[in-house]
């Protein structure tokens, strides 16, 4: 079995996700220190995809430890509590139950709970839980995993504070307060690597930040954007380049909400669909009014407010 402190990744050429050197160093630092990796960056900068990349790479490099090539994802909500990371207890359904089912059948494990549980051998009573079969057994009974806590900014302020204790140091452990005897501790031979993403919309508590390894992903350069779009649209169309140049130029305008890569991909797909991706785009300033009008019609994909749309339209129409 591998020693967790020796886990390191180096990207394979086959992977479509190309992290920067700094990001790769941050990932390896987090793996080495066994700390959660906190990724911030503008929407569309590839934070969530980074977690998938880590899961894929760990699966390729350590296939017997990380048997599952996907991250276990927890989508943070404005009502999330720290216990939601581990399990959810459907108290209302339990209250309404007339068949006298065991309490376990109203408890479903969530991503961090699954990841900790998965590091331990299967015990018979685990099977009573609502989703043990689908969440753990269906994959492989014992495995290490990558847990993605996505968009932690959405959570109430208490959420990260409550996580402090949970994420202090491996081995991670959790218990179910509704089941006083239930207590699971991570088997350290199977690492659980936590990736947390944040849009930097609001500050996180200092104490929480100190427990994480942080990296801010800058918005991709035009060259990286070209690579991303080509991969996403499965094309190698050269006329995409001027579209990316125009997008980058428009993005630098004083927009209230800057568009991300997903908007770019949608926009370019739309341009392709409308047959606007041609030579005229490289010299759009000198294009005829009809062409400019057609471009303006697609700006709704990039602009997220009326003022942004008007600003971009003015820019295009000159």
């Amino acid at each position: 079995m591998i020693q967790t402190k020796h886990i390191q990744i180096s990207p394979t050429d086959a992977d479509n996700y190309k992290p920067s050197k700094a990001l790769l160093a941050a990932i390896n630092t987090a793996l080495f220190l066994q700390r959660p990796l906190l990724l911030s960056g503008e929407p569309g900068s590839g934070k969530t995809e980074c977690a998938s990349f880590i899961a894929r790479q760990l699966h390729i490099l350590y296939p017997y430890t990380f048997t599952y090539p996907q991250p276990l994802r927890f989508n943070t909500k404005s009502t999330s509590q720290s216990s939601d990371l581990f399990y959810a207890y459907d108290a209302v359904m339990h209250f309404a139950d007339k068949t006298n089912q065991p309490k376990e059948s109203f408890i479903a494990f969530n991503s961090l709970g699954v990841s900790i549980l998965a590091t331990n051998p299967v015990e018979e009573h685990y099977k009573k839980f609502r989703n043990f079969d689908s969440a753990v057994l269906s994959k492989k009974p014992v495995f290490g995993s990558v847990v993605l806590i996505d968009e932690i900014d959405k959570a109430p302020r208490d959420f990260p504070n409550d996580l402090l204790a949970e994420l202090e140091n491996p081995p991670f452990k959790f218990n179910i307060k509704e089941l006083p005897d239930f207590d699971v501790t991570q088997d350290l031979r199977y690492p659980v690597f936590i990736v947390i993403t944040s849009n930097s919309e609001k500050g996180l508590p200092d104490a929480f930040l100190r427990r994480c390894v942080f990296h801010h992903i800058s918005f991709p350069s035009p060259k990286e954007l070209l690579h991303i779009v080509n991969l996403s649209l499965k094309t190698n169309d050269l006329s995409i380049e001027p579209a990316i140049e125009l997008f980058t130029e428009l993005r630098q305008k004083n927009l209230s909400k800057k568009p991300g890569t997903s908007e770019l991909i949608d926009w370019i797909a739309c341009l392709q669909n409308k047959l606007l991706l041609d030579k005229r785009l490289a010299h759009w300033r000198y294009a005829d009014a009809d062409y400019k009008e057609s471009i303006i019609e697609t700006l709704g994909i990039i602009a997220k407010s009326k003022t942004d749309f008007e600003l971009l339209s003015r820019e295009i129409s000159g």
Partner: peptide, 10 residues
């Protein structure tokens, strides 16, 4: 690249 993630938080 290796040290920065330890010390920075935004």
């Amino acid at each position: 690249d290796y040290l920065a993630p330890v010390f920075v938080s935004n």
